[in-house]
Design a protein around this nucleic acid. Structure first.
Length: 298
DNA sequence: AGCGGTCAAGTTGAT
DNA sequence: ATCAACTTGACCGCT
């Protein structure tokens, strides 16, 4: 019933995704730069394949793909087209093979663009860069069969309704494949479930419910009520939720940093019998999922 | 092999 | 003013 999801990387299992820095790449000749990027992308396709097989063999039903799968893909000066890199066509094929592999294993894949992807920003440059990044991730999602690209509401800029209006306008600029995968998640600073659920209903966007963020930024909704409303935004699709525990406990000075493991007391009782994906945001990664499976007896 | 400085990007709130 | 936090420390040049 419950599908547990691993986020981006491994704790003990030696599967690594590579990246690169723009500063270094820009010191290289164009040919050397292309070779370097080609090698990283090829290795990352192999790492993704290994990640899928590991998840399948270890009771992990979902894997979140790192935004740096194709590092610096949309960087203004170091950006590139994978197909134009040496061996790029074969690497695209390798990503598509990952998609077939995930499907045959029954694994769900997701993307979670990082904090710089903001569709509510008043700065046109920020929005444009965000749209470009979302289109890159949508293409990678299409290759690999990922069905969700999950982002936050972004900043409030002193006027939350105005920020949400800009977000709504930006949605119209997305391609079909990006728009069809987009989901919105509550954060722990600015956008609570109560802020985003009406917006998601209005724009037919699924809502990714992060219960840790909700406990850090409460809004009057109970966990049960937020859960119920979040489920409804997914229609026939499998809902996606997030779970983590506070590093220093709920009475610590800052409840937001994530713990290595999930404290089973933080697992909402009302989630137990749902058919959902729960992405486990615990720093001990697959080790934490193994422990949580034990605690849940699944 | 190991160490330390560095790394594309935005926004918020605690210090 | 600085800094940590956010899905994640990893890369790179030097010794």
């Amino acid at each position: 019933m419950i599908r547990l999801g691993l986020c981006c990387k491994f704790n003990e299992e030696p599967i690594k995704f590579r990246t690169a820095t723009a500063t270094h790449l820009l010191t290289l000749t164009p040919a050397a730069r292309a070779e370097k990027l080609a090698g990283i992308c090829r290795d990352n396709a192999a790492a993704l394949r290994a990640a899928l097989d590991f998840c399948s063999a270890n009771g992990i039903g979902s894997f979140r793909v790192n935004s740096q799968l194709l590092p610096l893909k949309t960087h203004p000066r170091a950006g590139y087209d994978l197909k134009a890199l040496p061996g790029g066509t074969a690497t695209v094929s390798a990503f598509k093979a990952c998609g077939r592999r995930a499907k045959s294993l029954g694994l769900r894949l997701t993307f979670h663009p990082d904090q710089f992807v903001l569709l509510s920003s008043p700065a046109a440059g920020v929005t444009n860069a965000s749209l470009l990044e979302l289109e890159y991730q949508a293409e990678a999602a299409e290759w690999t069969g990922a069905d969700v690209i999950n982002i936050h509401g972004g900043g409030a800029y002193g006027d939350k309704p105005a920020a949400l209006r800009r977000l709504a306008a930006a949605l119209k600029r997305l391609s079909r494949r990006a728009r069809a995968r987009l989901a919105l998640e509550n954060d722990d600073r600015t956008y609570s479930p109560a802020d985003l659920l009406p917006f998601c209903r209005e724009h037919a966007l699924p809502f990714v419910y992060d219960v840790h963020h909700h406990r850090c930024l409460p809004d009057g909704l109970t966990v049960e009520e937020a859960t119920r409303q979040a489920l409804a935004t997914w229609g026939a699709r499998e809902p996606l939720f997030h779970l983590s525990s506070p590093r220093d406990g709920w009475k610590g000075s800052d409840p937001r940093p994530h713990h290595d493991y999930i404290d089973i007391k933080d697992f909402p009782a009302c989630w137990r019998k749902l058919s959902i994906t729960i992405e486990v945001e615990a720093k001990a990664k697959e080790t934490a999922i193994a422990r949580l499976r034990k605690d849940l007896s699944i």
